[in-house]
Simulated scan of single mutants.
Amino acid sequence: MPGFLTLEGKRALITGGTQGAGAATLALFRDLGAEVLTTARSRPADMAEAMFVAADLTTLQGCETVAEAVRERLGGVDIIVHMLGGSAAPGGGFAALGEAEWQAELNLNLLPAVRLDRALLPGMVEQGSGVVIHVTSIQRLLPLPEATTGYAAAKAALSVYSKSLSKEVSPKGVRVLRVAPGWIETEASVRLAERLAQEAGTDLEGGKRLIMESLGGIPIGRPTKPAEIANLIAFLASDRAATITGTEYVIDGGTVPTA
């Protein structure tokens, strides 16, 4: 069908594809015909071994393991989606972030993308085509000093790295883009809303409102669904976005208050 969105025949690596928006992206890519490989520390019971490689991407060795699996199982890669990210840093502002906390933020939110790109991009350049999508965050624009300074700084570094990479490899046929989500309604975020609701003596919707208020409000009145993140990523990865590179797409329900 003319204009139909497809990823048929594409080989894709999606990091962090076992839960949340990563799992939604993996499912959509498969539905659209891509051959997909994903990775995490352990394989979910309902995920086929053929599409999974166990690795700790916060380490150099883990990234090397995944890159080798991509070459062996897929014979190369056409699309890389760097979904991996998150934070376990304590609240308390900058003073709560010691050397270990800062290193952990970089090891999770920046260095896996840098290391995997370094290993796999030469193959894309050699074949003259490919798409790399770095999932950043609106936190790079709206950091919360009490809790997300390290995470926001790491995502900001990822965004700048991605832009620089796009300038280098786009002339060689490899598109590089960024997707910046706001609050995504994952299982983890629902648990957070439930906890906040209990502490505040309200219901789940009240807990969600507390999160939205902490972000300065979400004009559409709700968080983004994982499937909505997946839809944007799939479009950008497809040939329908063939002239899009070097840009960042914010998907946050209007949370960022400036253009």
Rank of each mutant, 00 (worst) to 15 (best):
R240H: 15
F235K: 09
R222S: 08
V190M: 06
A200I: 07
T243C: 05
K208R: 15
K208W: 15
Q198S: 11
G254I: 03
G221T: 07
A193K: 10
F235D: 12
A237Q: 02
T202A: 09
P219G: 04
R195D: 15
G207N: 09
A193Q: 05
L232V: 08
Q198E: 14
I244E: 06
G253C: 01
G221E: 09
Y249S: 13
A242N: 08
T202L: 04
E228H: 04
A197M: 06
E205H: 10
I218L: 07
G246E: 12
E199I: 01
M212H: 15
I229A: 12
I251E: 03
A227V: 14
R209V: 04
A241M: 08
I220A: 01
G217E: 10
R222W: 03
A234Y: 13
R191T: 07
E205P: 00
D252L: 01
T247K: 13
E248Q: 12
E205D: 09
A197E: 11
D203S: 07
K208M: 13
K225H: 15
D239L: 01
A200Y: 03
Q198R: 12
A234E: 04
A237E: 08
A241K: 12
T202V: 05
A234I: 12
I220S: 07
V250M: 08
R209E: 13
T202Q: 13
E199N: 11
E194A: 06
D203K: 03
G246V: 03
G246W: 07
Q198Y: 11
A234C: 15
K225L: 15
P226T: 09
P223G: 03
K208L: 14
S238I: 09
T247R: 11
A188E: 10
A237C: 13
G246M: 08
R191G: 02
I229Q: 10
R209Q: 07
E213L: 05
I244C: 03
L204H: 00
V190T: 14
E194G: 05
A237W: 06
A242K: 07
R191W: 09
V250I: 15
L236W: 05
T245G: 11
V190N: 00
I251M: 10
D239S: 11
G254P: 03
D203M: 12
K225I: 00
G254K: 06
A234V: 10
L196F: 11
P223I: 03
A234N: 06
A237R: 02
S214F: 12
